[in-house]
């Protein structure tokens, strides 16, 4: 890390060490009530991708794009409500607002990445916030996934309006979340920690008709 960063900004590793095990926002509900297992009738599957690294990037698009390109090898999405991903699909950047992007990477990478980005950005005007502990990511997959979403959000999830590579922040049930579609069959939902329990139960309830199965 450069001297400038070390002098002006205090960063810290939010991942607990081995002595404290990290827990997803959904751990309580998972443990307490159990979840329906996938079966042959299941038309939609739900799985949690817990403890990923979530970083919020704020600043000018051009400066951030250069830094992200040099560190990760792919750039910011070029349009509003768009998603860009690396080749393996493990790392993604989503447009949230004209000066704000959500970067999601495999868990444990975020602290090192933050340092590298800060170094690449130098003294540009920007902000990086590690929000990994504040949200979690759910994946919905299956033929009935879109029907489940249609019951839950007023946003139009028809493929004409919601092509692959799009992502929006919108109303979902009585809360809100980030809804994104990285591939043809898979939808991702980024939930706030405080809404996670409610939304998880809502999704299970809405998915009951499609024999929703939770893959662990």
């Amino acid at each position: 890390m450069s001297n400038l960063v070390a002098q002006n900004i205090r960063t810290f590793e939010t991942h607990p060490g081995v002595e404290i095990s990290a827990e997803s926002p959904l751990v309580f509900f998972h443990q307490r009530s159990g979840a329906p297992a996938p079966c042959t009738e299941s038309r939609v599957a739900l799985r949690e991708r817990a403890l990923l690294g979530h970083l919020i990037l704020r600043g000018g698009a051009i400066v951030l794009d250069e830094a992200v390109h040099s560190v990760l090898g792919f750039g910011l999405p070029a349009y509003p409500n768009a998603l860009s991903r690396d080749e393996g699909g493990e790392r993604s950047i989503q447009w949230l607002s004209p000066d704000e992007w959500l970067l999601i990477v495999p868990g444990g990478e975020e602290f090192g990445l933050e340092g590298k980005l800060r170094e690449a950005l130098g003294d540009a005007h920007y902000a990086i916030v590690n929000v990994s502990g504040g949200q979690t990511l759910l994946e919905l997959e299956g033929e009935a996934a879109r029907e489940l979403l249609m019951k839950s959000t007023p946003y139009d999830v028809h493929p004409d309006n919601f092509p692959v590579g799009k992502g929006v922040t919108t109303v979902f049930a009585k809360a809100n979340l980030i809804l994104r579609r990285p591939t043809e069959t898979r939808w991702e939902l980024v939930l706030r920690r405080s809404f996670a329990d409610y939304l998880y139960r809502w999704i299970l309830d809405a998915g009951e008709a499609y024999a929703i199965g939770v893959e662990v």
Partner: peptide
Amino acid sequence: PYCEEHREEEE
């Protein structure tokens, strides 16, 4: 005008 699309009034 920032998202460049129509959104539900609830938002």
